[in-house]
Design a protein around this nucleic acid. Structure first.
Lengths: 168, 168
DNA sequence: CGTGTTTGATATAGTGGATAACAATTATCG
DNA sequence: CGATAATTGTTATCCACTATATCAAACACG
């Protein structure tokens, strides 16, 4: 038997033999691949990752982009209203807004009706950046998803996720 | 005009008038409801939330549960292997394991082949807890998802998310 | 042997999310 | 009106999760 005759290093007997067998015995996911929550999170991370890549030229995170979108669709709202609809707590929304305002993408204006609250508005630069971001998202990010799932698949997926997000 | 004759408080003119109109003009989500990443994250949060509720009697987080599942399906693996397949960085996996080991759900055993690495094994208590956790997940958590989406819908959703997680 | 690599571990920093508390302002109601 | 309560933005602080650099011990390999 040549095996016992040839002195085999530990590396040989483990890594190389395993590679010969099947690339170091892949760890079995088992029932994990059927756990919806697990796959859901993995998919979410991938999608956010791709979003960041696609919109990198404009230096916008998903959260920042969603704020700009909301301000555009709801001009004149205050911080509490915007933060609440995004599921962001007011204290945590402050620094997020600071960042956007310091980049001159939006402004806080004291309300005349209620001098406690800040009316939020997109600046011209904010509108311009948002418009460019939308184009990147549609042409690169969502386009890639359409390519992977097909338009029908994408719509089906969106509908199911919306149902979970709203009714679960 | 009775409006000008009756002194209306600011609260009247804002909150009540709005309620009369339509419950304080809800903030418009706008294009946000079509952003897959946004809905994906919201759904993921809801699912994790429900997972925690369903498995609360056993005090297991999704991450802890996934580790137990992997150890059960892959007895004898080391920390690096388990952490890698879960997408957890080795440094961060240490405290996670500390927590499980301190609860006597799993053990680290020095490998005889390679005395650097720790072989991970479920304890009897770990197997028992995992078995009970599985029952809760199936009977409560996944059951609720099936109720919401239907078995077909759930499978379709899982397939799409898997595709994104693996191929995106 | 000596050099380089791997494993588990520690320290540390960054980020996101959550609560308590505060000043300023507004609402409520006796 | 005036006292009390509620709301808004803000700060401070804490916890969980993530990411990087570094280390000693053990191992691989020439």
């Amino acid at each position: 038997m040549s095996d016992s005759a040839r002195p085999v290093s530990k590396r040989d007997s483990r890594k190389e033999a395993a590679v010969a067998a099947e690339e170091t015995q892949a760890v079995q996911l088992g029932e994990l691949s059927d756990l919806l929550g697990y796959v859901l999170k993995r998919a979410q991370l991938k999608v956010f990752e791709d979003f960041l890549r696609c919109v990198a030229p404009l230096q916008l995170t998903p959260a920042q982009f969603s704020v700009l979108l909301l301000l555009d669709a709801n001009p004149g709202r205050n911080q509490t209203e915007i933060a609440n609809t995004l599921g962001i707590l007011r204290p945590n929304f402050v620094s997020l807004l600071d960042s956007l305002e310091s980049r001159d993408l939006c402004t806080r204006v004291r309300s005349a009706n209620d001098r406690r609250s800040h009316i939020l508005l997109l600046t011209e630069k904010g509108k311009s950046v948002l418009a460019r971001a939308k184009k990147l998202v549609v042409s690169k990010h969502e386009a890639r998803l359409n390519e992977l799932l097909g338009p029908d698949g994408r719509d089906t997926l969106l509908a199911m996720l919306t149902k979970i997000a709203e009714e679960f």
